[in-house]
Design a protein around this nucleic acid. Structure first.
Lengths: 138, 138
DNA sequence: AAGATTATGCACATAATCTGCATAACCCAA
DNA sequence: TTGGGTTATGCAGATTATGTGCATAATCTT
């Protein structure tokens, strides 16, 4: 099985290149010896929680200085998103998320450095991932 | 698949009966409509962590002083685990869990006596359940 | 609205898990 | 130590789950 390997490579690629479409990514992978087509890429990106921001795919995970407390966003199951923040910042970050009034968010709960965001399904999960990420990226 | 169902029944049975052997348990299960043999029972008991004490099978009681606050672990949906702790201990227990850096754990949130542990799917749920339990059992 | 991009139902391939059988390993009383 | 009762396990086949491409639907962008 080469799925895991392929997904690692995908992360590597989108972290070092500006990838604008799945077709592009597919070609790159093929040129590196992976036999794969667009459908699988689509599913891989879904699994990895990769989203397209400003026209390029990106992993919503960054040690961006400007990101104000938010460290990473990760999906869990199909109705949860888990956000990691700097210690003590969860509440503050959560307030910003709540203020955005993203309709797909069913509810949020903040701990010390973690926030759970509940959504209804996978599709909403992706939407929220993207929206939240947009709030904090600069 | 009837494995999960069968294992639940096994727990129920050994909690309400004195079961002295796997053969005995096998018969009881068959009489309740489960088609199973001793080999599988053996494997089930192993998985469930059931042990024979004073000649009867029993689920090990975790009220162990060494368990340091953790009272129970329970699954919810297929991407959540809910841990109950002694009142006021949730944060402390949660720190121990976090420190274990279990990769399958997406995030944790501690309240007063409850911890939510987010994982990605059922498989990871099982892994985490086991690992967390291992942290607190010795 | 049209073309580009991404998602998905379906069918099939592959991999993982489950299970019984047979039997080995273990336990313990005498 | 031995023998009967009990439990564990290697193996092979059955069953389930996962991964994949194809064709095409749904969605997005302009």
């Amino acid at each position: 099985m080469q799925k895991a390997e392929r997904q690692n490579k995908i992360l590597e690629i989108i972290n070092t290149n500006q990838i604008g479409s799945q077709g592009e990514l597919t070609e790159l992978l093929e040129s590196k010896g992976f036999s794969v087509n667009q459908s699988s890429i689509s599913r891989d990106l879904l699994e990895l929680g990769v989203v397209k921001v400003h026209g390029a795919y990106a992993v919503p995970q960054k040690n961006n200085y400007a990101s104000f407390g938010l460290i990473s966003l990760e999906i869990a199951g199909d109705n949860l998103i888990v956000a990691k923040t700097d210690t003590g910042f969860a509440a503050a970050v959560c307030v910003r998320i709540d203020n955005a009034k993203i309709p797909e968010i069913v509810g949020t709960i903040a701990g010390e450095d973690t926030i759970f965001i509940a959504v209804r399904n996978q599709k909403e999960q992706r939407v929220v991932l993207k929206r939240v990420w947009e709030i904090f990226e600069n």
